[in-house]
Design a binder for these strands. Structure first.
Lengths: 234, 234
DNA sequence: TCAAAAGTGTTTCCAATACACCCATGG
DNA sequence: CCATGGGTGTATTGGAAACACTTTTGA
């Protein structure tokens, strides 16, 4: 640790700082959250958000990246800090602060390896969540609200889809995040008119209906438009 | 402190958690921030955001309220948590996390009483800020961005004005927060058409130009409209 | 009578909304 | 030939933006 000069920190009490992450995924037309089942006290066997203590020389964002990587083996994922929680009684063992993040990871078919304190890890439909440990229900809600805000303002929805997707996929995604239905023709008109998705020329295959065109998000085109004053909204 | 049962927290290192607050005020057509000049090491004599350690049994929000009250003697002020900062090297004395808040307090003519580690407290124009201690410039920026976002979506601008104000006051406020000029006629049309400000019947006095009508924000009317689906935007 | 800011309407344009039918594929 | 979702266009409306002059007061 660092030296303690004359003006050293004198914390009033022992406390711990952790990060907790709401990992959103999208599959089967519904928004999902990755939860882990605790294998230790307190809240043994309860489902909880993945999270870990922040290490001595680690940035908050780095701690969040680490938790995400250990659980999903995924790197360079969309990650946004949302809020911090520190009610004195939120952890029965002592004063525990947590910094909440949410992340978006592509179609949720990932190897998922629970670590030390977790027995299982599993995606849950956002509308069918179990009781959560600690104040994790509040944490999750804050993150969901933030996602709803952001997804209307920034083209981050694409992070939850495979590299190529149909416009219906995209619409389903928005509908499940926002919890409302959207008009098909207006939605398509809007997305296509922005000029930030590109027709790949490919079609869906092996579907028992008319195959949809597949698009991809054109990030460099988006960046260029932003420079000219464009701003994304759904 | 709490008992430490078998599953007690074992923090990896000693750390401190504080809150820092960006206190916004508005005067003389410009947005201001209340800063304190440090009277202790590190960063002796540098200007910094007001802030304190969180106490052992104190909520984060309560700590922010406390800092605000000790400095301004004001209670029940608009306060919003923005983000947390915890880079390992942000405090030379050890690992220090901080949770950033911003608050809006009415026309900045308040008694301001700097506490222990602060020599002076003073409002600075948002465009004429001094060098700040620690990473407080980043903290301030995050709060300013958040304020800009919020002020377009929620009627919080009124918190920065006296109970009665002219429409030009309101427009000046928005212009200094957003950093852009607005069209007078369109602005007034928009505000008046929302029906959330009420004409008090009074006029400005002792101004050497045509006196402006004074309005007041009608919060209960706003709440009622929100229930009917209204949403504020500037 | 001058300086300073208050106050006021109209037109134009574009984006949001509402809305219903035909098409391509696999089974 | 049926079921399933894919794909398409138009008319209407309401809000956003652009824009310039007259009014009231104190000095």
């Amino acid at each position: 640790m660092l030296d303690a000069p004359s003006y050293s920190l004198k914390p009033f009490f022992v406390s711990a700082v952790s990060v907790d992450i709401v990992i959103f995924g999208f599959e089967n037309k519904s928004l999902r959250v990755l939860l882990v089942q605790r294998g230790v006290e307190p809240y043994m066997n309860r489902w909880a958000l993945p999270g870990e203590m922040v290490k001595a020389n680690e940035n908050l964002d780095a701690a969040a990246d680490r938790v995400l990587f250990e659980l999903t083996s995924m790197n360079e994922v969309y990650l946004e800090q949302v809020a911090s929680f520190g009610a004195p009684e939120r952890h029965p063992a002592g004063r525990a602060f947590t910094v909440a993040y949410y992340s978006l990871i592509g179609t949720s078919a990932h190897p998922v390896s629970p670590n030390g304190w977790a027995k299982h890890a599993q995606y849950f439909d956002i509308n069918e969540l179990p009781d959560l440990a600690f104040d994790h229900a509040d944490v999750l809600n804050a993150c969901l609200e933030r996602l709803r805000e952001r997804v209307r303002m920034r083209p981050i929805g694409f992070e939850l889809l495979p590299r190529t997707f149909s416009l219906s996929d995209l619409q389903n995604l928005y509908e499940s995040i926002l919890g409302e239905t959207l008009d098909k023709r207006n939605f398509r008109k809007k997305i296509l008119s922005m000029g930030i998705v590109e027709d790949t020329g490919d079609l869906q295959s092996n579907v028992n209906h008319r195959p949809a065109k597949l698009y991809r998000f054109d990030e460099s085109r988006y960046e260029a438009l932003v420079k000219k004053g464009f701003s994304f909204t759904v």
